[in-house]
Amino acid sequence: MPEYIVEENALKDFLQSISKGRVLLSPQGVGDKCQITETTPDKVTLNFTNTHISPKTLFFPQTEWLMSFQKDHSKPHPYVYQDLGDKAKSAVVFGIRPCDAKGLSVSNKVFQNDRFTDPYWKGKYESVIKVGLACKDPFPQCFCVAMGGSPYGATGLDVLAFPSEKGLGLKPITDEGAKLLAEANLKEADLSSELKSQEEAAIKAQGIPDDYSPIDHRGLLNLFQDPQWQSIAENCLNCGVCTFICPTCHCFDIQDEENSEGGVRMRNWDTCMSWLFTVHGTGHNPRPSKTERVRQRFMHKLKYIPMKQNGDRGCTGCGRCVVLCPVNIDIRSVALRMSTLNMQKQA
């Protein structure tokens, strides 16, 4: 597939064209932070690092109504629960970062797993065309390369956009992306060698990546039983910030809210950092202390997900938790410790 070029002053026209009949979503400033929201072509900017919270909010809102129920079953058409329907609108998102697109593709395999499909996620995820924006100058907190990705990675994207010498370069990734670009009447251009050299430079800018591959080779129980989890967890406050801002954390709680006539069943983001997350009705808790809960988070990201998703990690190196953890727990140093910890306690 060919690449295309959008000249500097033609960005607005391009966005106008791809958002015809669709909602346009793009990172917008909210105070000193930015977040992907509905916007118009004139407000789109390429000048942002990354969104404060991962764009999972687009497909998996913090609170989401699943169904309604009514209590009076004597009415003519009684229902116990009624689907609150799929309000998914067809949309195009412009400016999603490669780490986030890849992270959402990991979550996509959980929401659409080997046995069940989550209709609320699927409806939204699949009605949004994803145009990513490559990171020509990676930010200080980024480590996508060490996690097996790239600042120019295309996993989970339909189109990859990148700043070219001549304007904005566009590389179609999926058929849907190709169709979107073909319909936009753009100038074709062979940007493959520019793309290649840009990617090489961006990868180099992240420095020599840590090698976390020993985690893949260590046995599950050997890692799980490692005595160092206690010291890794020592400072954690179990605040859950790391899980809420993460592009691959997808855990939720289901709650009912009611009035005298009926109510709604909703889901809310939840976190494995919470004691309530796993406590049984009997009071027994399989993860009673923060050591087990911190271990769960890192094992889930770096061992369980790779075991289930052909080696793809549940961390894509976006760096949000590194920046936002109030006690500076850094997944990179945890991953390094998991890569090198004592090997004698073979399980």
């Binding site: 959980v110 929401f111 797993n113 080997d114 046995r115 069940f116 989550d118 599950l220 799980f224 997808h250 855990c251 939720f252 709680d253 289901i254 889901r267 939840d270 494995c272 997350f277 796993t278 406590v279 049984h280 009705g281 399989p286 769960q296 094992m299 889930h300 061992k303 369980y304 997900i305 075991m307 289930k308």
Partner: peptide
């Protein structure tokens, strides 16, 4: 096995035992 559950579908994330979900 029993673990605390919500979705029962291997999605909400709370019932896992290592890489396996007790529910799914």
């Amino acid at each position: 096995l029993e673990n605390r559950m919500k979705c029962g579908l291997g999605i909400c994330g709370r019932c896992n035992v290592g890489p396996e979900y007790v529910c799914k």
